[in-house]
Amino acid sequence: MADDNNTDERDDEKISPWQQIIDNPFLLLFIGVAMPTVFYTLWGVMEVATIPIAPY
């Protein structure tokens, strides 16, 4: 069974780029870490870091 003859001929159109993204767990890992790191963490830390000192 473990031979390489697994190209099922049910359909052989080109795989859509979306499917290629979804089938690639490490690309997804990158996206899944980068998105919240940028929008939540980095932006959030900037927000807190730029709070001014009280004017009195």
């Binding site: 099922d8 049910r10 359909d11 052989d12 159109e13 795989i15 859509s16 979306w18 499917q19 979804i22």
Partner: peptide, 9 residues
Amino acid sequence: PAQKNWWNV
């Protein structure tokens, strides 16, 4: 999935 190319279903 039943199709290799399930995105196109």
